[in-house]
Write a protein that binds this DNA or RNA. Structure first.
Lengths: 209, 209
DNA sequence: TCTCTTATATACTCACGGGTATATTGATTA
DNA sequence: TAATCAATATACCCGTGAGTATATAAGAGA
């Protein structure tokens, strides 16, 4: 029986229990991704992750299938954030360059988030064949989305007529890199880094006349 | 007794034996770095490396101390190549931008070589505390060298007055990235990639008037 | 020729960590 | 109230792979 305006109570309804479960699952992923990022996937045991949450390993297996699935969920979340960054800016106003700028900024910000970081730090080597294939496919989709944006810009003249594929690689490299070195507790805020990175990529090193 | 003009003989002199030994050590490193790059450090056992050379694991231990030392030697070789790239171009003619361009090009090429690749693919997580410290110190030296070059260019007006630190990070990211994706057997030659990358970084995405 | 060193192999030890079998407790439902 | 299910723990199994003890064969030097 649903309890529309129920007072807070120690007795949980079905939906509440499902929400609890989801919350715990989420907590496991957050703890895991943090440790994966800090120590590396192979150097992190599920016992470690469990201990950091004050629980035991079988509890993790109660919420997630196995260690690889934990990683895949983390990476997938990161990739979803990246896709979202690429797609939302697609329908925005402005010329191609303006739209690309906005996408790059968001992309860079995601890369300095726990789940985003995880994407760069996870090589295909860590995944099983199927996992790696999925991973590659999703990354490819993001790459294509980026290329389309660059092509738009070239078409409307707001971006120089560059090699699209190489441009996408260049951008990806520069924007992924903060995932490796940026320290959220350091002096540079993620926003500063993102803005600075994007400006440099768009203007280039050579002085403009 | 030295044999100055010795004919080829199955009996090896002391120096020849030392050279042999060095050659074998080198072969182990080459085989190891290839497998590390292909499958990842943790996923590669020394038994695998040994098997790929038709030898057995204790033979590797005869030439190198332990698995981490194998990795450190590989990374060190990569870092030496990168340092060399940065330093040789230092004394070249031309303005700051021209010298930087030449350094970036070499740097990118190293990153598409076995040992260079290994540098990007090896996170600090793989190394012991001491190993990681050494690793970071050497990377820092390269970064500083890069920054100095950028400062030279800004001083002589050949490079726009950018934030030096962020510029160095941007360049590093874009130039390291090929170490992750470039396939030496693919359609794009390392030279093409390097040239293209450097051009894009120097001119930027926005059209020049 | 006898010994010492170098290069190599076989066969082992041992810790770590992924994954599981099973017990327990408390709440849910019939 | 009995039966069931969800959530969690303890205690285990077992494969993998780093690293080693030990044997052997061949060449170098005395």
């Amino acid at each position: 029986m649903p309890r529309p305006n129920a007072a807070p109570s120690p007795f949980r309804s079905r939906e509440e229990r499902e929400r609890d479960r989801e919350e715990k699952r989420e907590a496991v992923l957050r703890a895991a991704v943090r440790m994966f990022n800090a120590r590396g996937f192979h150097a992190t045991s599920l016992d470690d992750v469990a201990a950091s949450l004050g629980i035991s390993k079988p509890t993790i297996y109660h919420y997630l299938g196995n260690k690889e699935q934990v990683l895949i969920e983390c990476v997938t979340r990161g990739l979803q954030l990246l896709s979202a960054a690429a797609d939302t800016a697609r329908a925005q106003p402005g010329d191609g360059l303006a739209r690309l700028r906005s996408v790059l900024r968001r992309y860079a910000l995601v890369m300095m988030d726990d789940f985003g970081r995880c994407v760069v730090r996870t090589g295909d080597e860590f995944l099983s064949a199927e996992g790696a294939a999925l991973f590659r496919a999703r990354k490819r989709a993001i790459d294509l989305s980026m290329r389309a944006l660059i092509e738009d810009g070239i078409a409307d003249g707001s971006i120089a007529p560059l090699d699209v594929r190489m441009t996408a690689f260049t951008l990806a490299g520069a924007l992924n890199w903060p995932g490796r070195w940026h320290d959220p507790d350091g002096p540079l805020s993620a926003e500063q880094v993102a803005d600075s990175l994007v400006d440099i990529l768009i203007s280039g090193l050579a002085p403009r006349a």
